[in-house]
Structures are given as structure tokens and as C-alpha cells.
Amino acid sequence: MALSRKDMEELAVLAQIAFDEEELTDLQVQLNNLLQYVETINEIDTENVEPTFYLLPLQNVWRQDEDGHQPLAPEEVFQNAPEHERGFFKVPRIL
């Protein structure tokens, strides 16, 4: 099942990336080639095989909610923000 033009447009919205027509055409060819390549693993029998998502037998790692890691100072939190005002990150108007 190859990716159609419409699939590509929907995917771009999911990925939150704007592409121009030409970029999307190139990408469609590249992704379809790549998918064809990775689909070779479908030939491997994985009947009754458990998936591996994590390599270590670790469960959730907790710590006590007490003098743990020092939080950043407010000026450090905002030092890289493209726009901020009165202790808030500023974004284009929503409402």
C-alpha cells in the first residue's frame, strides 16, 4: 500500500510541518521507497514473539517529592523563548 498524495498532505498536518508542492512530491517518492525497503521484515516469522520496546527491565522510576533537583530560575526558563511577557510564553492570538 503506497502513500498517496492525500496521505502525504494529512501526514504533513500530523507532523506539523508545512511543505511546498515540490517538496511533498519528492518526499512521497522517498517515503514510498523507504517503506518498501522496511517492509522486508514482514517476511520474518514473529508468531508468538513478544515485542521489545525497552532494553532494560526497568519499570517507572520514582523519587520522593522532596528537595530533589534544583528547578531553573525564571530568567533561565525564559532566556531562550522567542517571545515572553510577564512570566508567560507568548504565542499568536488564539481567541
Binding site: 504533513a12 520474518i44 514473529t46 515485542p51 520496546f53
Partner: peptide, 26 residues
């Protein structure tokens, strides 16, 4: 990012990501 978004999208997860995770076990 586009490739990753696709293989995790609904309807594709089993075919790609879950399959890959099983092959990872092998």
C-alpha cells in the same frame, strides 16, 4: 519525522512499529 509519524499513525502501528519491536526481540 514524516516517516516516524506515518509508522505510528493509526492503522500502521501494528504493521510497522509493533512488527519491528517483535523482530527486535529476535
Amino acid at each position: 519525522i514524516m516517516m516516524g509519524t506515518y509508522v505510528l499513525s493509526s492503522g500502521c502501528y501494528e504493521k510497522y512499529y509493533l512488527k519491528a519491536a517483535k523482530v527486535r526481540t529476535l
